[in-house]
Amino acid sequence: MVRQAAADNLEESDDLDWKEMLPQPPRDGRWNEFAKDVAAMANTRGGLIIFGVQDRTTALVGIDPDEVNRQQYAQWIRNHVQPYLPDLDIFELTDGTKTVLVVDVPASEMAPHFVYGGAARDKEQQTAVVPYRDNDHTAWMAEHQIERAYRDRFARVGRAEEELQRHIDFTAQTIAAHACAPSAWFIAVSRPQRPLPRGTYTMSRDEAREVLEAAKTRARVLQTRGLVPGPLVGMGDNTLLNPRPGLRRWVCNNLESPINREVITELHYDGTVVMAANLSFIRESEKPPGQDDDLLVSERLVTACCYDFVATTQEQQRKLRLDSTLQLTAAIISPEKPRAMAPRTSTWGDGPESTPPYARRPHRVQPAHTVLSPAAADDEGRSSADELCTDLMSQFGV
């Protein structure tokens, strides 16, 4: 595509910038041009910066791949652009004879991004500007444009929070309609900062089934220690292998005929994932004495839920090729009415769980939040799952 665009003399625009030379370090205390160009596209509507093509003639001259220093380029972005751009993708393309460097800049949900630089005469003096793409060149935002960009950012953040809460509330209402006994539930929602537009791509039933099966396998890879079975295992093969259509989503749940623990998993067409599991399900023979008034919350089960949720989020992310950071929210609720929740934990790892005497029994648990970058590796997924679990269980004093 790059070769064809260059041969067709495709002109630069607000979402395409040809560069003949690789990014160069700033000289004489001037702006870092690479950081400025990246921020300008992120502040506009995103686009591609392609190194190895002359901007005037669009001649494909290529670059020397041995001179590419992606770590250095990423450091320039960290040092000179605020707020940080986490979704930037830098990669090389080659046909065996010529190589180009492509910088894929997404439209940022956190715009406006400032670029910081020093003055030539006084390197200690820092200045900041807000660049943006105006057709084929970079310009600086005026005060009224910066004000509007901030208003747009706050509006986007508000809508994203409302959407997350809407999914949590709807799932809680669904649970309350089916619950036959007081219970504490794990509910988690992941949502891309830039959801897929309606109609761009719809997973088939077979693809949704593949995502869930792959997530069940990935959850075992993420776990570094033995845990109780999580929601994906608890759904059983019949439910897991038979996702049903919902409102622009695929739905798997066993609420109508729960064999063991009630579980809900939803894969939305826009990239959202919803997962819920009954934390209080426990057989009468296993119920500890003197805990009739408390809803029991197992730390091992919460941990397994967090791992299953993150694994499902990662697999859906890969299937849909989402290039946006994901916002993850997890909560523990009592859908009927607030009741005391007692944590169950084990001092000896795999030993039996009990409620520590010093533990708190909160009636409400605040939601925990984290983020997951595009195509996150296993280490980042494991870290996100541990962060959610720690934030939830810390509220019990354990």
Rank of each mutant, 00 (worst) to 15 (best):
N79C: 02
A181M: 07
D95G: 12
E109D: 12
V251D: 00
A330N: 09
M1L: 07
E380V: 05
Q223G: 03
R248M: 02
R225L: 06
L22K: 04
R121L: 14
A215V: 05
F396G: 00
D64T: 05
Y307M: 13
L279I: 04
E380K: 11
T99Y: 04
H137E: 09
T94H: 05
A177C: 01
H167L: 12
E299R: 15
P23F: 11
W76Y: 11
E336D: 15
R361V: 06
P289G: 02
M41G: 10
R318D: 11
T94D: 03
P25A: 06
R249H: 03
N260C: 04
N69Y: 00
W31G: 00
E210T: 08
P65E: 12
L101P: 11
G290I: 02
Q54V: 07
A214Q: 13
F51T: 04
A377K: 14
I264K: 04
R382D: 07
P367K: 10
S298Y: 14
T239W: 06
A107P: 00
F170M: 08
F114S: 15
F170N: 10
S190T: 05
V68Y: 06
P25R: 02
P192I: 02
A107I: 05
A276L: 04
P288Y: 13
K123T: 07
D134M: 11
V157L: 15
D292F: 05
R205Y: 00
R382V: 03
Q314E: 06
Q126N: 02
N260T: 13
S394F: 02
A7P: 01
D350Y: 06
G226Q: 13
L240Y: 01
V273Q: 03
E162T: 13
N254I: 02
P83T: 04
V103D: 14
E262I: 01
A149R: 06
D104N: 15
V228M: 08
C180E: 06
R166D: 09
E256A: 14
R225I: 03
A330K: 08
V297Q: 10
A40L: 13
G381V: 05
A311P: 03
Y132M: 12
Q327A: 13
S324H: 07
L101S: 07
G349E: 11
E11S: 12
A128K: 13
G349V: 09
W31I: 08
P243E: 07
M141D: 01
I49F: 11
G29H: 10
